[in-house]
Design a protein around this nucleic acid. Structure first.
Lengths: 235, 235
DNA sequence: CAGTATCCGATGCGATACTG
DNA sequence: CAGTATCGCATCGGATACTG
């Protein structure tokens, strides 16, 4: 192979591809566009990536001028942020996602549907400021998932959101029942949340306030947001 | 590693990235967007890629539904074409190139500048229909290139365009003199061709008709075209 | 022309363990 | 928390040779 991952062409498409399309990099950018800034925070979005490789990619992105750090390396305050050049990649990553949603079959019904990754994604997008102060506990039930991935709990305590796979033992404020494809379809903006609720494909049981405010405290994915901005939601 | 180049996430960005951002794939798509359809034609645009790998990538792209073939495999008439899903990638590849042109330093002054690749690119974009019938011979001289990459000849005979690195012995109809960065800057649309001619950074000597019609017979790269469409050219 | 088959070396990357 | 260092192998991909 040529040195590393270079293409030996001056064409700007090739130069851009060398930076943006190395393995995992589009997903790291997606995470940062979604607001992740700390190392572990970014890693949560790409849990299958080794930390060593993430570290390497972050260095490469810094060398390319796409991201930069605020504090000193290693310092507790250190955070990564997108530079202007990195911000300029946002519409490209977004377009890639919209393309994937529209054209990749398995984006909705492949065997990749994993309730765990979905819950991790959702966990990161709970808007705690739209929830009551103190503790809120939600239980998710995916009737179509294998037993070990079927039930999940979110324990929200003021700012902290904890995801559990075993019953934390607290009283449940809200039960959420759905199939994985339905919840995922809503999550990526392929279907609107109110429509799925109306059709009872997602069923909420419990605190009336939480049920009513779900559109505020459950912030959907980057793509669902984009969909609302580009074309009016279906329902 | 996980199976092949998959990410194990359902996020549409990840699914799209699995298809679009594997090594060489963005460049193959660029070639096809530029109009290449035959195997060897595509390969000319990515000459550093092995034919075996190109073959493999083309199969993968077919499996993903991004491209399809017209004739039977191997038949002389066989050609690849973008499907609707592939066409939908055009704005993304274009945006990637525009980003690269704007933000990647070395896109214009790195050590990657190679007059050979530039000439190969240009060769593919000569519009023979805008040239006189019969034979036209042009000589390019890059005064800043190393000796072995300094002089190039294009021999155009009706439809056929041949690129030579040694004097083909015919009478020269047009001499083109420039530096590699200047010609490349024009080629990728960073600078307009008329402006570079006005400033004598590109100098044409020879047939007056060829000199006048250069904007028609030398079709610039995908990106230069896009630039003309999105914002008025500088000159 | 338009590929395929085989070989094999380089390296990308995961796993594990360690550091400040 | 935020990484780094080392090891080892799977696989990616280049080179070469062959086919319809």
């Amino acid at each position: 192979m040529r040195t590393e991952t270079e293409y030996g062409q001056f064409c700007p498409v090739a130069k851009a591809a060398e930076i943006v399309t190395t393995r995992w990099t589009p997903l790291i950018l997606r995470e940062m566009i979604c607001g992740s800034a700390r190392f572990n925070e970014i890693h949560r979005g790409v849990p299958l990536m080794s930390r060593a490789l993430l570290s390497k990619r972050l260095k490469e992105l810094q060398a390319s001028g796409v991201i930069a750090r605020d504090g000193a390396a290693g310092s507790p305050a250190s955070a990564y942020r997108l530079t202007p050049s990195g911000e300029a990649l946002q519409p490209i990553i977004l377009a890639l996602g919209l393309w994937g949603r529209q054209w990749v079959e398995s984006a909705l019904d492949g065997p990749d549907w994993d309730a765990g990754v979905l819950m991790w994604d959702m966990r990161r997008r709970i808007d705690t400021s739209a929830l009551p102060a103190g503790r809120t506990v939600m239980q998710f039930d995916y009737h179509d998932a294998p037993d070990e991935l079927r039930r999940w709990w979110l324990v929200i305590d003021d700012d902290a959101v904890d995801l559990c796979q075993s019953d934390p033992g607290h009283e449940i404020d809200l039960y959420v029942a759905a199939s994985v494809p339905v919840m995922a379809g809503v999550w990526i903006g392929k279907r609107s949340l109110p429509a799925a609720l109306d059709d009872e494909e997602i069923v909420l049981v419990g605190d009336a306030g939480l049920r009513r405010s779900i559109r505020r405290w459950l912030k959907l994915s980057l793509l669902a947001d984009a969909a609302e901005r580009t074309h009016a939601p279906a329902g």
